[in-house]
Design a protein around this nucleic acid. Structure first.
Lengths: 123, 123
DNA sequence: TGAATTACTATACTAAAGTATATCGGTTAG
DNA sequence: CTAACCGATATACTTTAGTATAGTAATTCA
């Protein structure tokens, strides 16, 4: 892949194409904010119920969790499933897209680790 | 690589290790906000002077640009070089770490493009 | 000499993001 | 019956992020 990297190596191109900018903005929207990544991570670790998430995510308020889950659902990152046969339970799960975001998270972790090593040397 | 993905596949692990969380936070800090990525992209496209950046980044104020450049410098993403032989000019350039962030940007673009395709089908 | 350019900084403001605290409606266990 | 639990919502607030507008100091160009 490495789409943007390839692009900037072509000397004649001097601006990021619109489709790339849009894709980047989409990604930023689903990861930015204080709670998005923690929530996604918790879902990866199989915390699927509202209460489980509320307990796992130290410091989050129900209002915030509710708001973030709604946003993630609208953005196609998670699915909300209600089991009607009693007891009525709500389960949140990552969609395929939601699971794929791990490629981004991994790239971030890798860069972060590398960057820390680089900074160590300098300081 | 794929560090986090590998991790969550091991059933006994049920929390993201501290070093990964820290690395992720570092990365989030250097890319989040309205102007960080646009500034980094502009630097990739060889806009190196304060004025060039101010003109390329539509809508940014000098105050904001100055603030963001300072933060990026503190975080080891860019270097500020002053050429003293007249005319006195200031040039901002991406450090090695700053250039490596393209791996993250690319992962984000790739995911964004894929996600858009997925959403198309559904809607 | 005086206007323009570069690289900013200062003060004051608005808007967006996040928090605190309380409450609700349905279900279920004792 | 009622106390507790689940999955939230309502209102009010604080904090952080970003904007508007003006101005500064140093140089350079005509």
């Amino acid at each position: 892949m490495s789409s943007f990297r390839e692009l900037i190596e072509q000397a004649e191109v001097n601006q990021c194409p619109r489709q790339f900018t849009l894709a980047l903005t989409d990604t930023m929207n689903v990861v930015s904010g204080k709670w998005k990544l923690p929530i996604i991570a918790a879902l990866f670790y199989k915390k699927n119920r509202f209460k489980d998430l509320l307990d796992s995510l130290e410091g989050i308020t129900p209002r915030m969790l509710s708001k973030e889950l709604k946003e993630l659902e609208i953005n196609g990152m998670i699915e909300r499933k209600v089991t009607n046969h009693p007891p009525v339970l709500v389960a949140y799960t990552l969609t395929e897209s939601g699971q794929n975001i791990i490629t981004v998270i991994d790239a971030m972790i890798d860069w972060g680790l590398l960057h820390r090593k680089g900074e160590m040397k300098r300081i």
